[in-house]
Amino acid sequence: MSSQNLTQQDSSQIVSDEMIAIAKKQRVQDFFFHRVTQAFSLLVLVALMGIIISLFINAWPTFERFGFHFLWHVEWDIINEDFGAAIAIVGTVASASIALLIAVPLAFGVAVFLTETCPVWLRRPLGTAIELLAAVPSIIYGMFGLFVFAPLFADHLQVPLQNVLGGMPVVGFLFGGATNGMGILAAGIVLAFMVLPFVAAVMRDVFEITPPILRESAYGLGCTTWEVVRKVVLPYTQKGVIGGIMLGLGRALGETMAVTFVIGNANRMPTSLFSPGTSIASVLANEFGEAEALHFSTLFALGFLLFVITFVVLAMAKVMILRAEKAKGN
C-alpha cells in the first residue's frame, strides 16, 4: 500500500513543471502543424475558385454581349467581332466522341486481357507498357499524328472509305470532302490512342476488385471466360467502368496538342468526318497569341466553358469510381 502511494507521489513529482511546459509546447507545435498543412491543402480549393472567377471575369464582355446565344451561334468572324462557340463545341464534342467510340472497346479488351487471359508473369510488363502509353506527352501524339498518321490515313483509309461509302444515301455525306488526312475523324483516332491507357487502367483496377469467389462460382457453373467477363465481372464493376469511360471523356475534351496538330484548324462548321474543324482547346492554342479586345475575352469565354464542361464530366467520373470502390468494401 505504502509503496504504491510512494510511486504515485513520485510520478506526480516527475510530472514536473518542466514536462508540462514541454507538453504545452508540443500542443502549440501540433496546432501550427495542423494549420500549416491545412493551409497548403486548401490551396487546391483556392486555385479552383481562382480559375473559375478569373476566367469568368475575363470572359464577361463576351457573355454580356452575346448572352446564351453565344453557345449555339455559328460564327467566328474576328474582323467584325461576331463570335459563337458552336463551331468549337461541335468540333470538341465530335472528336472526343469518336475517340471514345474507338478507345472504349479497345480499353475493355486490354483490361480483359490483363485480368483474365494474360499469363501472370507477363501482366506486370504489359501493364507497364500500357501505362507508358499514357505517359507519352501529348505533343508527341500530335507530331506523330501530323507527320506519320495523317499521310497514311489519307491514302489507306480516307480514299477507300470515300470510294465505298461516299456514294451511299443517308451516311454518304459523312465521308465527303478533301482527303488530306486532317480533320475531325483523324483527330478522333489520334485522341483514341491517347485516352485508351487512362480508360484501360481504371477498367483493369475495377476488374481486379471483383471478388474471386464470384468469378470462381461462375466458372464452377461452367461459364466460358467471355461469359464470366460479360455477365459477372462487367455487371459487378459497372459503375467503375462508366467512371473510367467518363474520365477518358474528360481527358479527350480538354486535350490540346494532340488535337491541334491534326484537326485542321478551320473555323467552319464541319460538314463531314473528313472536313477540318477546330476544338475549344485548339482555338485557344492557335489564336490566343494575337487576340485583342472582344476576341480576347471570347477566348476566355471558351476556356471557361471548357473548364466547366470537363469539371462536370470529371466530377461525375470520380463519383462513379468512388461508388465502385465503396461497393468493394461491402
Partner: peptide, 23 residues
C-alpha cells in the same frame, strides 16, 4: 479537397495556362 484534387489531375491544362496568364 481530395475530390477537387482528383479532378485537377485531369483538368484541361490549356485552361490552367489561361488562368495563369490572367493572374
Amino acid at each position: 479537397t481530395r475530390f477537387v484534387t482528383d479532378i485537377m489531375l485531369s483538368a484541361p491544362s490549356i485552361v490552367l495556362g489561361l488562368f495563369v496568364y490572367a493572374i
